[in-house]
């Protein structure tokens, strides 16, 4: 796929990438600027504010009414558990769709795609009522529980991810499992021991995508979680800008930056998993 580039080939590639990075970072730098600006404005007139302050970052770690570290921990917990379970559930489903031929397979795939497209304008009310009922019998799964929130996220994550993974499984040659099954492995063992390790890149991709999606989800979390100590980051953040005319953009920006850093840190090791797929053989240096 790739071969060694001439110096010119390298040059334009790096230039293109740096152009992209400029595009990616341009607004982010304004957010960074807002996080150091004591006036709490979002769109400053100058990139470098007249006075710089670390006040907003200090607030994040010292304001007991807005326990940012707790929010961060809650979010990593919720998003992490959701992401891991999603990957497992999707892999199971995708394996069935990819390897078995059964009645209702095509229509099942179509349905999986379609149900995700429903405009979820009223979903939050429905989900609220569902968790309310559940909570009457299983308090640890009801409103205002992280487990309840995780369940909700799991439901929303299935469709497209299963599809995506199924497509990837389709490209893994069947001969590998078939030889394993000749040796006496059950289909589940073949799935667990052979398909999953080969599909590592896609597992990592779905892990990170699902992690980020749950990490930033606001609407459902805000309606299900009550009480500052239970909040996830997205819900907690809104606290700083809740009043139409008294928005603490500086603190919000600082928290956004911290949140983004956490994701980038998590993404760093996962990158290696994503790249560790079948193409590894391609690298001949």
């Amino acid at each position: 796929m790739y071969s060694r580039h001439s110096w010119f080939g390298l040059l334009w590639r790096h230039l293109l990438i740096w152009l992209g990075i400029a595009y990616a970072l341009f607004p982010a730098i304004w957010v960074l600027s807002a996080s150091f600006n004591p006036t709490n404005t979002l769109v400053g007139q100058k990139l470098i504010p007249a006075r710089l302050t670390l006040e907003h970052y200090r607030t994040l770690f010292s304001d007991p009414t807005a326990p940012f570290p707790t929010w961060l921990a809650n979010t990593v917990k919720v998003a992490g558990v959701t992401a891991v379970i999603t990957v497992l559930l999707c892999a199971l489903g995708a394996y069935a769709f990819s390897r078995f031929r059964f009645r209702g397979r095509r229509s099942g795939l179509l349905m999986l795609l379609l149900v995700q497209m429903f405009p979820q304008m009223l979903a939050m009310v429905a989900i609220y009522l569902l968790l309310l009922e559940l909570g009457k019998y299983f308090p640890w799964l009801g409103l205002n529980t992280h487990l309840g929130l995780i369940f909700v996220y799991l439901g929303g994550a299935m469709g497209f991810n299963t599809w995506f993974m199924k497509g990837y499984f389709d490209t893994i040659p069947r001969s590998l499992e078939e030889s394993a099954m000749v040796d006496g492995a059950t289909p589940f063992q073949a799935f667990w021991r052979i398909i999953l390790p080969l599909a590592r890149p896609i597992l990592a991709v779905i892990l990170i995508i699902q992690f980020i999606t749950s990490y930033g989800e606001y609407i459902l979390a805000s309606i299900l979680l009550k009480g500052v100590d239970r909040y996830t980051l997205a819900v907690g953040l809104r606290f700083f800008i809740q009043e139409a005319y008294n928005r603490r953009w500086g603190t919000f920006a600082a928290a956004s930056i911290m949140g983004a850093i956490v994701i980038v840190l998590i993404f760093l090791p996962l990158q290696r998993l994503i790249i560790s797929g079948l193409t590894r053989g391609a690298v001949k240096e």
Binding site: Y168, I202, I274, I275
Partner: peptide, 9 residues
Amino acid sequence: LGALQSIPV
């Protein structure tokens, strides 16, 4: 990035 890994070299 993930999907690219599925293409056999």
